[in-house]
């Protein structure tokens, strides 16, 4: 399945819903969208991976890039993911220790709002 990207705003947070396959071919589109959001002033970004059915190292690289960019801009970045195959990818790469990972968008937003985010 092709990559799908949809953005919505929840209070102070920008939620980017990602669906389909994030790989070496589609990851540049995800990078562009994240850059657009950050350049457009978004500082509290939540990326919802709930409808992602494939994620590779290129996609992970893009997500880390966004995390760093937001951190250096004084913002926050969190991921929403509750699928075991994807969570395993984060564990194996140790990126579960780098990203705030939450099972739902609500959980990500409330964790960030209480100051527990990245």
């Amino acid at each position: 399945m092709e990559l799908s990207l949809a953005t919505r705003t929840v209070g102070e947070h920008t939620v980017l819903e990602v669906g389909g396959e994030v790989d070496v071919y589609t990851a540049p589109r995800l990078r562009e969208r994240l850059l657009e959001l950050i350049d457009g002033g978004a500082r509290r970004v939540v990326v919802d991976l709930g409808r992602v059915d494939f994620l590779d190292s290129t996609g992970l690289g893009v997500l880390v890039g966004a995390l760093k960019r937001l951190r250096s801009a004084g913002g926050s970045f969190a991921l929403v993911c509750d699928k075991e195959p994807l969570l395993k990818i984060f564990r194996i790469t140790a990126l579960d220790q780098v990203f705030p990972l939450h099972p739902t968008v609500d959980a990500a937003i409330s964790a960030d709002s209480t100051g527990a985010g990245a």
Binding site: S57, G61, G65, T93
Partner: peptide
């Protein structure tokens, strides 16, 4: 992994 100095390409290769 989260270091500023690590390029996205290097990170992607390592990951």
């Amino acid at each position: 992994l989260a270091k500023e100095s690590l390029s996205e390409d290097a990170l992607t290769t390592g990951v």
